[in-house]
Nucleic acid binder design. Structure first.
Lengths: 154, 154
DNA sequence: AAATGTCGTCAGGTTACCTTACGGTTTCGC
DNA sequence: GCGAAACCGTAAGGTAACCTGACGACATTT
């Protein structure tokens, strides 16, 4: 019988935030760092939401509808992101030769360069963060999150 | 020299989403489940953003400005959330006897009940998710995220 | 060649924040 | 004590990042 009778004031305390708070903070931290690195590399006009495009656009290009599905958002919303990135010169849209209705969204040369920066920055951040943790913990973090998001558990 | 020359197409592929994607998915999954449980318990009018209040409001009540700081948002934004929850009957504001400028935001009886549901749901979800992972992994997930968000690494 | 379905856009919300400005209180320095 | 500075909360207005509904252009099916 300890004194800690789990009377649990708020959902979480300032000292011990709950899992949701921890997840948002980690995510925000990661994206802030990532955007800093984009900016430092000369791509200061990239915004948080553009990640939805960069994160799911394959080098070979992809249709808007498919891209939206991957990013788990509506085609309308993705359409706006793509239009925005197009006007900034990161992606372009060309007619799909195989289907008159469709167009293929793909990186421009500039977009590919930015993407490369992003890939490196993410790898680098993961490495740096991993060094501040006990050995193997970063790999376990990834694995744990993959399992949880795969299962879509209870 | 493997075949995997890290030509890394997009920031991440559909099969191997990057850390940021994993973090958002886990977070979204968690909050969706949490809101489902609130709804099932009769608190269907609670929205995602209300978490900013529930997550940081102590039983003893707190000033708006302090609450906003804890949740890391502006007092204006927090003010709107609190006003909303007040009109829904979850919190109330009373004059701070110690300071004429300030008012204390605190749970109503209804709010305290909802908070209790939330505390339990989070504990339960963490437990259920933990069962689908190797032993000790959920605890490690928390610990790892705490370390990362504490440090605000690199 | 008509019905039906898919691709993307247009129009018009909503949510969840933010900045600037300000009107009341308290506290602090003198 | 008394003006200056600091703090508490609100008001007003804006923006980013989504969403739904409707539709016109093209494809596929039958």
């Amino acid at each position: 019988m300890t004194d800690v009778k789990t009377r649990a004031g708020a959902l979480s305390t300032r000292e011990h935030p709950h899992l949701g708070v921890l997840l948002s903070r980690a995510q925000r931290l990661l994206y802030d760092r990532l955007l800093e690195r984009f900016a430092a590399a000369g791509f200061a006009d990239l915004r948080y939401a553009h990640g939805g495009v960069f994160s799911f656009l394959p080098e070979s290009g992809i249709r808007l509808t498919a891209l939206a599905e991957r990013a788990r958002m509506t085609k309308q919303s993705m359409g706006e992101l793509v239009r925005d990135l197009e006007s900034l010169g990161y992606v372009e849209r060309r007619q799909d030769p195989a289907d008159g209705r469709a167009r293929i969204v793909a990186f421009t040369a500039k977009g590919a360069r930015a993407n490369e920066i992003g890939v490196r920055a993410l790898r680098n951040l993961e490495f740096e963060w991993g060094r501040q943790l006990a050995s193997g913990r970063m790999a376990q973090l990834r694995a744990t999150l993959e399992t949880l998001t795969d299962v879509g558990a209870t």
